Amino acid sequence: MPSYRDLPSSALIQEASNWRRDFHAHPELGYSEHRTSEKVAQLLESFGLKVTRGIGGTGVVATLQNGVGPSIGLRADMDALPMQENSCAPHASCLPGCMHACGHDGHTSILLATARHLSESNDFNGCVYFIFQPAEETGAGARAMITDGLFERFPMEAIYGLHNWPGLPVDTVGVNHGAMMASQDTFEIHILGSGAHAAMPERGNDPIIVATQLVSALQSIVSRRVSPLNPAVLSVTVIEAGSAYNIIPQIATIKGTVRCLDQDVRNQVQEMITTMVSNLPPAFGAEGTVKYMEGYPVTKNNPTCAERVRGVATELLGDNHVVWNEKASMASEDFAFMLEACPGAYFWLGADGASASKPLHHPSYDFNDDLLPTGVRLFSALLHSHQTNPLLK
């Protein structure tokens, strides 16, 4: 009988690689993962698992119960990105303008292979929920699943998720006891001035001048008003104003994003943006309004669960293959919503093989299938870790 310590069979890994390449060739955007989720559900049913469809839209949850014991959740994301693939791979995207450039095809295949591996071994007591989530890329599919009763319908003491990570070698795990990924908020600022002929600016109030002053002021928030010991990013990414060379416009618009690793800093930055928009434009005789949109929260690990990931990875891969207290990324991840609702941990699985992986969201990115067996072993070992040392006693 196979054990979680064993390498998954080569036949299973080859099958997982085939699934992965099929998903890659047929990408689907958030909340439109109809083909993907149906294939996932059918495979899970073929493994003998109880399957629930339609959680949070196109989400799927499979239940594997074996006796009495702790219950945990393992999560993978399924959606692709709205971008054109630039690849000569035989499994390249068949859909123009859509591709798996973040490895969710691989995450889905790892979790499917884990479900197959555990259903065949049955060497545990308890319950594991395999959670296949829609719409991670900006669609907040994790929140949609939670709103749809994920944790009430499938109660679990902990939940775990992983992400392939270019920059770390294959068979290397990166994890820390706190924030792994930043929060992600956006803002849209409107500066209302007064239009005029460009040759007679004194007859109007140029909102572009005000906007440029405000952009400079916004940059002082991170450089001068937030402690350098508390990482934050404020990026202005859009400035829109005007329609002709000889017209001073009425309105200028500024858009951007804020990323933070601490909720208090996140609140502080939002407050300072709002204050600046209220106070700076009137000094120029203009009016400023801001729409601040909170997005994903900080992806913050439960320290006990993070230590569990560290211990399992060290046991399976060796201490030299674990980067403990790995530096957090200023990118964001909607697994954060699940970690707010349930103890758990999110970790990175190295993607660099003999040559470095393309970056995430690159048009030539392709998931490294060498990660598949390591991901299956880590997920399986986390389940067994909860058998010997439950989180809830």
Score class of each variant (00 low, 15 high):
residue 293 M to E: 08
residue 290 V to C: 07
residue 223 S to L: 15
residue 291 K to N: 15
residue 307 E to W: 06
residue 269 V to M: 02
residue 195 G to S: 15
residue 201 P to V: 12
residue 283 A to P: 00
residue 181 M to P: 00
residue 219 Q to N: 10
residue 194 S to I: 08
residue 178 G to Q: 14
residue 218 L to G: 02
residue 261 L to A: 01
residue 306 A to M: 06
residue 188 E to N: 07
residue 246 N to E: 04
residue 179 A to E: 05
residue 274 T to W: 04
residue 246 N to F: 09
residue 240 E to I: 14
residue 295 G to P: 07
residue 269 V to F: 08
residue 282 P to M: 10
residue 179 A to W: 11
residue 244 A to S: 15
residue 169 P to A: 07
residue 212 T to N: 05
residue 239 I to F: 10
residue 300 K to W: 12
residue 171 D to R: 15
residue 249 P to F: 10
residue 274 T to R: 14
residue 301 N to D: 11
residue 195 G to N: 10
residue 301 N to H: 14
residue 259 R to C: 13
residue 239 I to R: 01
residue 230 N to T: 04
residue 183 S to C: 12
residue 235 S to R: 11
residue 178 G to C: 12
residue 203 R to F: 14
residue 200 M to W: 12
residue 253 T to R: 15
residue 291 K to S: 14
residue 241 A to V: 11
residue 191 I to R: 02
residue 207 P to R: 03
residue 274 T to S: 13
residue 187 F to Y: 13
residue 246 N to T: 09
residue 181 M to I: 01
residue 266 R to A: 09
residue 193 G to W: 04
residue 308 R to N: 02
residue 270 Q to A: 13
residue 175 V to W: 11
residue 282 P to W: 08
residue 302 N to W: 10
residue 216 S to P: 00
residue 237 T to L: 13
residue 218 L to W: 02
residue 269 V to E: 00
residue 288 G to A: 06
residue 275 T to Y: 07
residue 298 V to F: 10
residue 253 T to M: 09
residue 172 T to E: 03
residue 265 V to T: 15
residue 197 H to P: 06
residue 233 V to P: 10
residue 301 N to S: 11
residue 269 V to N: 00
residue 170 V to F: 03
residue 273 I to K: 01
residue 303 P to L: 09
residue 285 G to D: 07
residue 301 N to P: 12
residue 279 N to R: 12
residue 174 G to W: 15
residue 228 P to N: 06
residue 286 A to I: 11
residue 225 R to W: 11
residue 206 D to G: 01
residue 241 A to Y: 12
residue 233 V to E: 11
residue 309 V to K: 07
residue 271 E to R: 13
residue 184 Q to M: 01
residue 276 M to G: 04
residue 290 V to W: 03
residue 273 I to F: 07
residue 222 V to Y: 01
residue 301 N to W: 14
residue 230 N to F: 06
residue 257 T to L: 07
residue 292 Y to E: 03
residue 202 E to A: 08
residue 297 P to N: 04
residue 179 A to T: 05
residue 175 V to N: 05
residue 233 V to F: 09
residue 248 I to A: 08
residue 227 S to T: 09
residue 253 T to W: 11
residue 210 V to Q: 02
residue 283 A to K: 04
residue 237 T to A: 11
residue 289 T to K: 15
residue 268 Q to V: 14
residue 250 Q to F: 02
residue 210 V to N: 01
residue 175 V to Y: 09
residue 256 G to M: 05
residue 211 A to D: 04
residue 220 S to F: 13
residue 299 T to M: 06
residue 244 A to T: 14
residue 261 L to E: 01
residue 273 I to D: 02
residue 284 F to D: 01
residue 210 V to T: 14
residue 241 A to C: 10
residue 229 L to C: 00
residue 253 T to K: 14
residue 244 A to G: 14
residue 260 C to W: 05
residue 221 I to G: 03
residue 199 A to R: 02
residue 270 Q to L: 08
residue 296 Y to V: 12
residue 300 K to I: 08
residue 241 A to Q: 10
residue 275 T to E: 07
residue 292 Y to W: 08
residue 290 V to G: 04
residue 215 V to S: 02
residue 225 R to M: 12
residue 223 S to Q: 13
residue 181 M to D: 00
residue 203 R to D: 08
residue 249 P to T: 11
residue 295 G to C: 06
residue 231 P to Q: 09
residue 254 I to E: 02
residue 282 P to S: 07
